[in-house]
Design a protein around this nucleic acid. Structure first.
Lengths: 271, 271
DNA sequence: TTGCTCCTCACGTCACGTGAGGTGGC
DNA sequence: TTGCTCCTCACGTCACGTGAGGTGGC
């Protein structure tokens, strides 16, 4: 039945008053009693442990939203949730580290050309596509849905004229949703298609493209940066210029693939 | 003499327009020509590389201020600056990792009592002190200056009655400056002191304190959290209550110490 | 009664994303 | 002339720090 005012509670938990007020608002650490007249917050002794845990997780830089989920789980579940979150942090750090090593090697002039880059001609063709704005979390779902939509609307197996591909028109990341398009080259004319509002049909002109074949592992974001740089360099060295954003030709099922399976051609169209 | 508008430049560098406008404002990547009538930004071919480097460093999560410093250095210096920055990132990650392991062990009930905690009585005494608000970066300087101030104003060697100590009244971190106080127990009365505006003299009442002896390594921030928790637990188990914030008794010179030298008593006063 | 603690706005931080509302260029 | 690109505000994000201006409690 101790009634601890916010200042003392802040000292005991090594949190700031401001932080405590925010945690109150977010229902993370709610004072056991608030004076209705003055708005003064009073905490109890047994809230110290919870507040400290929150503070400790913040020191790990865990977002408050994640903390809110974690602190209401039981021991074992909480431990698992924390571990899962931290694995993500370590994975991100590993990717950054890899990108740093690439940068350092490049700065030293070690132009490690690990990828075999080539050029090929793409004939003019008709393309059926489904486009949408998605962020990273939504790509998987988009992919499934778009594929189903195209299959339902499409001209059937005999009308398919090539490997499906994704076009990325803007940046797709954690906190930004770029326009993305799933495309399928077809033999059919517009009339063969079952009407579906989402499906667009257009004719793509003949053009050249540079490409490189990538494994599932190399398809993650930071890992792709050096590859795109290499494609650009190759293009410049061959006195060509790129036209538009890059594409991913889906040459194998990603779901069934291991990290080293070659699943995709990364492609940039040329003028 | 290519005149690339912002949209095309954004595509080629895989940066957003918004980002490019910000980099322009910060003089990080400035368009070679801006139409004075319309404000349209036009970039040139040779800016692509610089813009890409900025984008790559941003992917590593380097702050724009650091990037601004890095991109204007030559190869070798830039490489060194990047490495220094990254070392800091890795150090922070290592500290977080250590704190996580502490948390995980604690949750599993493994109450690893690595530190020997004890209690002792402090007699009432007179204290001369210098206080200031500092953030992490300023502590070193504060320490030097405060020590010199105290020595200049103080009663001389024969008047000193104990080890100097630091009191932390608030949180001291990267982006917050807490009030911090360097204290020196003295035998002298107020009259013995040379007047110095910054120096305060006060009488501290007799009290008990819990303490633990720490090495230089254990004195870093996240590493201290478990130790403070342990002091709190010890206090509760012995049916005492803490009074105020913690202190660091400076029992050895930190500068000359190796990571394992015991340099400090971490102390919490009791009621 | 005097300080001290507490309260609630409100603004700044950092690097952008996302409209709104408007104009220039092909 | 119609779209498309570009422009400049302005607000939101995240977890607070830092006053300002005001009131309650011992």
């Amino acid at each position: 039945l101790t009634r601890i005012p916010i200042g003392e509670f802040a000292q005991r938990t090594r949190l700031s008053r401001k932080a405590l007020r925010i945690y109150d608002e977010l229902n993370l650490v709610v004072p056991t009693w608030v004076d209705p007249g003055t708005g003064y917050r009073y905490y109890s002794e047994d809230q110290v442990a919870r507040a400290r845990l929150v503070g400790l997780l913040r020191r790990l830089d865990m977002p408050l939203a994640t903390i809110a989920a974690v602190v209401d789980l039981d021991r074992a579940e909480a431990a698992a949730a924390i571990q899962t979150w931290w694995d993500g942090v370590e994975a991100t750090t590993a990717e950054r580290r890899a990108l740093l090593h690439y940068l350092q090697k490049r700065q030293q002039g070690e132009d490690q050309q690990m990828h075999e880059i080539a050029q090929r001609s793409i004939p003019g063709r008709t393309i059926a596509s489904v486009a949408r704005h998605v962020n990273i979390a939504g790509t998987e779902t988009f992919f499934d849905e778009a594929f189903r939509t195209l299959r339902a609307a499409g001209p059937g197996i005999e009308g398919i004229a090539g490997v499906p591909f994704l076009v990325f028109y803007g940046e797709v990341s954690d906190d930004s949703d770029g326009p993305i398009e799933l495309c399928r080259p077809i033999r059919a004319s517009r009339e063969d298609l079952i009407a579906a509002a989402e499906v667009q049909v257009r004719v793509e002109a003949a053009h050249d493209e540079v490409y490189v074949r990538l494994s599932k592992r190399e398809l993650s974001w930071p890992a792709m940066v050096p590859v795109l740089d290499a494609l650009e360099r190759w293009t410049a060295e061959h006195h060509r210029r790129t036209a538009g954003t890059f594409r991913q030709l889906l040459i194998a099922d990603q779901r069934a693939a291991t990290a080293d399976t070659l699943v995709c051609d990364l492609t940039v169209p040329l003028r």
